[in-house]
Amino acid sequence: MIVIQNARLRSFLRILTLLLIPSVAVLGYFLLRGTGYVVTSVTVASLSVVLFLCGFDRRKTGSRRLVLVSVMIALSVLGRFFPLLKPVTAVAVITGVYLGMEAGFLTGAFSALISNFYYGQGPWTPFQMFAWGILAFLAGALARPLQKSRTLLCLYGALSGILYSLIMDIWSAVFASGGFSLPIYLAKVVTALPHTVLYAVSNVIFLFLMAKPFGEKLTRIKRKYGV
């Protein structure tokens, strides 16, 4: 059991990860001369997720906040099971907007991980975790304008659906061709278009109808339980 007890060691690890990401990317490019795109990209994605998660364990998180984030993760996973619509990222975006950037990232990343227990894990999991997480994280960073205007929120929802698809297309292009080439990427983008549109439209519909009640519910919980 490797429980990292030492706080300094943990922060060192965090900085190490931060340095590792660009070095892996650079090293991967030169050392592997283009044949190692897949490994490099998976490593970079995994390390990015680790970077965001590092330090979470050290901070004191109240039980209520922890429960709240777990609930949001589960609801976000249910979002992926939603009939007709596929509002991936929508619930995570709401979490980011109302509960903050870190909660957003956790919700996004972990709902990707957990839904893949149902859809299948693979090297694509870190990509999904990163994509889903970072979009919710950014929503958290833009919390103020997004809370104020439903139009902006819907716009962000559409954008996050498209971006999610575009990020995942990088992965499928790299994975399918063992290297990155623009024409193949574009082909992937085009073939994935129906999905992209579905994600974007789903997010917009979902956020348009659910953002307000969802926000009211979360605000009430935050006030009532002092989270």
Binding site: S63, R64, L75, M210
Partner: peptide, 28 residues
């Protein structure tokens, strides 16, 4: 059907969020 499903989801959200407090208390 869509409206119905969103309604169902919304009820589930309330249920999940409101009862989370019991789980948190049980943890504490």
């Amino acid at each position: 059907k869509l409206r119905g499903e969103l309604r169902v989801f919304s009820v589930t959200v309330t249920w999940a969020l409101e009862n989370g407090i019991h789980t948190a208390d049980s943890m504490e």
